[in-house]
C-alpha cells in the first residue's frame, strides 16, 4: 500500500514457525472462513481460527442465543458444530485451498475426547495448512460434574498432556483459558508444564441478562458468555498477570495470544503491550465483517507511531514502562 508506514509485523507462533502478522479471527466469531471470505481474503490474516469443533455433530442450544449488552454481548451457542470428521473433510480443505494459515480450535466432553479429536485432525489430508491447535479448555468436563476444565489446574493439565501426545512436535499448541478463576496464573502454569507451547487469553466471562419486560432470563440457555469491548480490561489484566509470572520465572516463557474486546488497531496494541504476541478479533467482527483485516492495517499504523519498526519490540513493553515513584 502506497504511503503506509513500513513495519515488520511478523511474529513467532512457536516451534520455529512465523506468521506474517499477529492478527487472527477468534474462535466462534468467524465460522470456518467462507462467510468472511466474501468480505476480505482470509489468507491475509496472521492465522484463521476456526469454530471449536468436537468429536460428534452438535446442535447447540435453543434460542434466544444472544443478548446485546453495554459495549458487548452475551452468547449461549453451546458449541454447535459439524463434528471433527466433517470439519476435516469439508472445512479444512477449503481453508487450505484459499491459502489460509489455520489455528484449529478443538474441545471434548472428556479429556479423552480432546485427544480423539486431535488424532483425527493430525491424520487429516489438509493438516499441512494447520499452523497450530488451540485447545478450548474453557468448556464443561462431563466427567467432573460439568466443571469447566480451565477452572481446575489438574483437569487442564490432563487435557493438554493427552492432546500433546496426538500432535506432531512441530505443531504449536495453545491452551485457551477462561478468566472466571481466582488465579489464572496457576492454570497457565499447569497448562504450560503439561506441554502447551502457548496460551490464548481470554474466553468469555459467564454472565446473565434478565429481560425487564417479561422479567425472565433473556437467553434460552439462561447464562451465557460475555464478550466485546466491555471485557477488554479483563483480557489486559489476565495477559499482564501471566506475563509477569513468566518474567519472574514461575514457568517457562511461551507466546501469548490476546483476545477480548479488540475492535481497533489501538486495542490490539494494548493487548500486545500487556504481553500478547498475537491478537484475535472476535465480537467486533459482528459489527464490521472486515474488522480482522482492518485491524492489521491499523495496528501497523499504531506501531509505527511509536517509532519502532517491528511489532515484537512492543510485546509486553508496559511491564518495562512502569513508573515507580
Amino acid at each position: 500500500m502506497a504511503g503506509s508506514p513500513r513495519v515488520d509485523l511478523s511474529v513467532p507462533i512457536g516451534a520455529g514457525r512465523v506468521l506474517p502478522n499477529p492478527v487472527m479471527t477468534a474462535s466462534g466469531c468467524a465460522a470456518n472462513g467462507r462467510e468472511l471470505h466474501r468480505f476480505f481474503d482470509v489468507s491475509q490474516l496472521g492465522a484463521f481460527v476456526t469454530k471449536t469443533v468436537m468429536m460428534e455433530p452438535r446442535s447447540g442450544r435453543g434460542t434466544p442465543r444472544m443478548a446485546e449488552t453495554a459495549s458487548g454481548m452475551l452468547n449461549s451457542i453451546g458449541l454447535q458444530g459439524p463434528g471433527i470428521r466433517a470439519f476435516v473433510e469439508q472445512d479444512l480443505p477449503w481453508l487450505k485451498s484459499v491459502g489460509a494459515r489455520v489455528l484449529v480450535s478443538i474441545a471434548g466432553n472428556t479429556a479423552g475426547e480432546f485427544a480423539d479429536v486431535a488424532r483425527v485432525l493430525a491424520d487429516s489430508d489438509a493438516f499441512d495448512c494447520v499452523v497450530g491447535v488451540e485447545v478450548n479448555i474453557s468448556c464443561p468436563n462431563v466427567a467432573n460434574r460439568g466443571l469447566v476444565f480451565a477452572c481446575d489446574p489438574l483437569s487442564s493439565a490432563k487435557v493438554i498432556a493427552l492432546v500433546r501426545e496426538q500432535l506432531p512436535r512441530d505443531v504449536p499448541m495453545f491452551a485457551k483459558l477462561t478468566p472466571d478463576v481466582t488465579d489464572i496464573v496457576s492454570i497457565a502454569d499447569a497448562a504450560v508444564k503439561a506441554g502447551a507451547t502457548g496460551l490464548t487469553m481470554i474466553n468469555t466471562l459467564l454472565g446473565m441478562v434478565i429481560d425487564t419486560d417479561t422479567l425472565r432470563p433473556h437467553l434460552g440457555g439462561i447464562t451465557g458468555g460475555l464478550s466485546g469491548p466491555s471485557i477488554r480490561p479483563v483480557a489486559v489484566r489476565a495477559l499482564w498477570q501471566v506475563t509477569q509470572a513468566m518474567r519472574a520465572g514461575r514457568f517457562q516463557t511461551v507466546p501469548l495470544i490476546g483476545v477480548g474486546g479488540v475492535r481497533t488497531g489501538r486495542d490490539a496494541l494494548e493487548l500486545i503491550a500487556a504481553g500478547a504476541t498475537m491478537v484475535q478479533v472476535g465480537t467486533a467482527t459482528f459489527n464490521d465483517p472486515t474488522a480482522p483485516q482492518r485491524v492489521i492495517g491499523e495496528l501497523e499504523t499504531a506501531v509505527a507511531a511509536h517509532g519502532v519498526d517491528c511489532v515484537t519490540g512492543l510485546v509486553g513493553i508496559a511491564h518495562d514502562r512502569m513508573v515507580i515513584p
Partner: peptide
C-alpha cells in the same frame, strides 16, 4: 430470529 451478525459467522440466529 434474533441476529447478531447477519452474515453467518455467529450462530445466534438458528432454528
Amino acid at each position: 430470529e434474533a441476529m447478531a451478525c447477519g452474515v453467518g459467522v455467529c450462530m445466534t440466529c438458528v432454528m
